[in-house]
Nucleic acid binder design. Structure first.
Lengths: 231, 231
DNA sequence: ACTGGCCGTCACAAAACCGTCATCCGCCCC
DNA sequence: GGGGCGGATGACGGTTTTGTGACGGCCAGT
């Protein structure tokens, strides 16, 4: 390894920043901290880090603005940190070009894990964060928050949309109800896993054609999956 | 699953502790409770749990001290419980190496959900390579829970799928019924080994072509095996 | 305050699955 | 070829998992 990968932490809260830096350094990264947006931008430009850890809530210059600004001039991967948790916000961040999104409270370990994941992913040019998910006759446009089945646009309430997205991120893969709860509604969500059943039912009414589920399939004893290519 | 994941609850308040334990056990964990920090440490050392649920407010030995102490000697994931809610405390906990943080009052269900999330995260550090088992005309995709024979997807109920996977993990090797029970349904499973016969029969109907078993072969007086390379 | 949409849970019915038993069949060895 | 043991099979009842309609709470727009 020629040199350690560089991570720039843009975070105004001193304690958070210190913790992240500590963990990053312990995990084999070179880390620097910027206290505010302006400083962040300037360090980012001069130090050329391999990744940015960017708090959205910043004094003066908003985190998203920085995200946008940097995107205009470089390809640095960006991992957003935020207290907010809605799919809405997540989307806004990702749409601005962020590579991933972690909601507070986060565990430093998890953040480090994600940093690693992003770096791995960007080194080997794989598929970028895609804006459009497809699987068979299903097509989801994230930026429009629009789902289309067999060309027909179906209007979905938030929960159902999130659930569908969670499934569509890995078509064919089987998810347990718990996994779905976590992926669709976030960790720490308090609700029975049977709730998923209800949403599945409502979803089916909107996306399935005949009485027989062809897209959103039940896997007995395990959970649900989205049909991919085979029978 | 060789055995249930172990969770150690360190909590002085009897009611909380009992509730957590109840929920954990109902959710498929083995749970033990320690009433104070000292006991917590000693059980943690001797019982080697897979995760610690640690109340911060403890008599005598403070929860954070335990956290620190354990971190020095092991990697057990730790989930903190606390009445306090300040960012200050939260950070202090996470900085000390905790993996997540739940503030009281908490819903037991949420706690269990987080426990699961942490365990999943620590077990499978990253999106694991999609496991695919092959043997002759048989192909099993674990993530999709899909078995294909001669290109044709066969739909298998949980028990049959598990059995097939157990066999497919070592094609050609002969397993006794007991071994199969253990590998497919886990140890501690209560059932006759003749049950395997039933599943084998049902499996054969789905994966064999003619009346003569070619894939799932009987080894008289011993058990069953999956054909590997010959006829 | 009212209406409508959305959500989480519940209760009940339906469906799928499982384990066991009794019986019949086939393999192995004498 | 026959005896004996292990395996195959079909049936059945009980259990578990899902599907679904209903209900009450909640929130936002009117």
């Amino acid at each position: 390894m020629p040199q350690l990968p560089r991570v720039l932490v843009v975070e105004d809260e001193a304690k958070s920043a210190a913790t992240l830096r500590l963990y990053l350094e312990k995990s084999g990264f070179e880390a620097r901290v910027a206290r505010d947006g302006a400083e962040g931008l300037s360090i980012a430009r001069s130090w050329s880090p391999d990744l940015l850890l960017l708090d959205i809530m910043l004094p003066e210059v908003d985190g998203l603005s920085i995200c946008r600004a940097l995107r205009a001039e470089s390809d640095v991967p960006i991992l957003l940190l935020s207290a907010r948790t809605t799919e809405e916000d997540r989307l806004r961040g990702l749409r601005l070009g962020a590579d991933d999104y972690v909601t507070k409270p986060f565990s430093p370990r998890e953040v480090v894990a994600r940093v690693r994941a992003i770096l791995r992913r960007t080194k080997a040019p794989e598929e970028r964060e895609d804006e459009i998910l497809r699987s068979l006759s299903l097509e989801i446009t994230m930026s429009n928050r629009e789902a289309r089945v067999r060309g027909r646009v179906v209007d979905l309430p938030p929960a159902e949309f999130s659930l569908l997205v969670a499934l569509a991120r890995s078509p064919g893969r089987v998810f347990s109800r718990e996994e779905l709860v976590e992926r669709a509604f976030g960790p720490g969500y308090d609700g029975l896993d049977r709730t998923i059943d209800a949403h599945v039912m409502r979803l089916r009414r909107k996306i399935e054609q005949e009485g027989h589920p062809a897209l959103l399939v039940t896997v007995f004893g395990v959970g649900y999956k989205l049909a991919d290519s085979n029978t």
